[in-house]
Design a protein around this nucleic acid. Structure first.
Lengths: 327, 327
DNA sequence: GCGCGATATGAAATCGTTCTCATATATTGG
DNA sequence: CCAATATATGAGAACGATTTCATATCGCGC
């Protein structure tokens, strides 16, 4: 079934059928006739041919580090909702946290595969920046702030500062378990917020009370062990993610260290697991799904509105004080 | 940059360039010349034009009910890994559990958008079956057994029977919290396994000890409340998902009901949260990511091997006996 | 030295749309 | 009543690749 057959069956030229499909001038009678034929045949225009001609793929590439992660999959849910509503489809590129893969897809997509790219980034190397700076299709960065580019990101700094200040009131010996600072958001941003709070409160967190580890529960467990063995006096641990905090918590529980009485604990991300554990985990809630929606809206705007203004959206947050911190 | 310009620059016809790209006869000298030109220009053939001509999109549609779910996102991670390795891209359709959306994408994809479809299904209506039975491109069903179709599924029945038999040894008053039986796998399959175990052990679970609820933690909490209020003698609760089990657990904890001494508890799915809670949750481990990989391999096979044999793969499982059940 | 298969190349058709032009008719305002 | 405009239609040229067909040369065996 192609447009020529439809045209013939309806007794018109293929141009008229095309016009029918794209809201051009078509008389009442022919419109009706074409509608009938299309209904009867179940004809659907070939996306490929349309794409070849119009150079619009109606596809948006979404590049992400790991789909089976709570925050990422929620962002994707948001992206998906908005893009589908606007008649775009998602091409998914799961890079499994490998820089090379990320660059590969970034390069691949811009050629002619997709109309635009949403990049859920973690670490930006110089090669990333170079590629992005000369990118041929609209790109929206999600999860990281990148000056001069369309992006949607969390207010890591203030959120963490805020939380740490609240937790700091009853803190004497403070520890920090973070992730690689190459990650501007979860690594650097959160640490900066933490440090800012300390400074404001006139408190300290010496180097031996700091760990930089992987985004994993086991790593959190291990870090807790090392911290406590080195410095049994620690009474407050700030973790850069909920997952890490849970790892820390499991260690503390094993050692019969009372939370929050002996050590208070907080994480970032407000995952389900933190809400359910006992004591429940104090954390920062970010609006991941909404971030995804915002990024997708921005993308649609960039694609359909020629004079769209590039925006940088900083999302809000909510501090969730729960039972793992002292009042 | 298109194939004509490359041809001209290399002093050959576009047919020769095409042959170069597709491993046809090309002499050493021209091969070298073309290679040079392509390298210099960074030319990449237009996917759309190729697709239009060859009718291969190199895209696989993945239809799923909810991306931000532990099991689904793990399956997608597996699918993604294998498909990418085989040079296919994924088009994601997140249906948010809406039957209409599912049917919409099923219809949309088969037209000309994708080479094949992987359907992570939950509930199959008659309309699904009709659509699938006359489907125009290869389809692989993931997560449900569908006789006569390529599918990859979990052995819900034996897994649940197995677990319930283990748990049954110390069980007197047994309750079951399940999900809609329209879902053949998580609803019907798990319940059947549970019932089979009871039968084998000669034990009972009366109707008032059974609940059919939504896939949610809150619903589990609520179900537990109702069950305990109606029948305080319950000493064993089997939940069709870990998430539900966690909801039940939270209620029991609130009521100071000892797990497993007073009530023992098990779930299905082996989620992180179950491993971390205290007492840790007895559950069934399914190999979701591997299932995704298998489904993707099957898809590649169906797409590239004309005489591929349709397969139905039943995955194995592991019973994880933890602390929430009595020894 | 001739025929045949392997190697090598290009012209032109093809995939299924959209879009520009050219052209025709209907409607409107002065 | 006529020019200007709006409405309506079709012919045919793109879009950028692959593939068929025709043709040419080469090497080899007999």
């Amino acid at each position: 079934m192609n447009i020529n057959e439809i045209a013939e069956m309806a007794g018109v030229s293929r141009a008229t059928v095309s016009r029918y499909l794209n809201n051009g001038y078509v008389s009442k009678e022919k419109r009706e006739k074409i509608r009938e034929v299309i209904e009867k045949t179940g004809y659907q225009p070939s996306t490929q041919a349309q794409t070849l001609r119009t150079r619009k793929t109606k596809l948006v590439g979404v590049i992400l580090p790991k789909i089976n992660s709570d925050s990422v999959s929620r962002m994707v849910a948001g992206i998906s909702e908005v893009l589908n509503k606007n008649n775009y489809r998602i091409i998914l590129a799961n890079t499994a946290n490998q820089v090379e893969e990320e660059l590969k897809y970034l390069a691949l997509f811009q050629e002619n595969q997709v109309d635009g790219v949403i990049l859920i980034g973690t670490i930006f190397t110089k090669r990333h920046l170079k590629l992005i700076s000369e990118y041929k299709v609209p790109i929206v960065i999600l999860g990281q702030k990148l000056e001069g580019y369309a992006c949607v990101y969390q207010d890591e700094l203030h959120a963490c500062q805020d939380l740490m200040e609240k937790m700091g009131r009853t803190a004497k010996e403070i520890a920090y378990v973070g992730v690689t600072q190459k990650d501007e958001a979860a690594g650097l941003g959160r640490k900066k917020g933490f440090d800012l709070a300390l400074k404001k409160m006139g408190k300290l967190c010496p180097a031996e009370n700091r760990k930089e580890i992987a985004f994993q529960m086991d790593a959190g467990y291990e870090a807790a062990r090392e911290l406590i063995e080195t410095n049994p006096g620690i009474d407050t641990i700030f973790c850069a993610t909920d997952t890490i905090a849970v790892g820390v918590f499991v260690y503390l529980r094993e050692q019969n260290i009372a939370v929050p009485d002996q050590i208070q604990l907080a994480g970032v991300g407000d995952t389900t697991i933190g809400r359910v554990m006992d004591p429940s985990l104090t954390s920062i809630h970010y609006f991941y799904k909404t971030s995804g929606k915002e990024a997708a809206r921005m993308m649609v705007e960039l694609l359909e509105n020629t004079d769209a203004v590039r925006k940088e959206i900083q999302m809000g947050y909510e501090i969730k004080i729960r039972k793992s911190t002292r009042p």
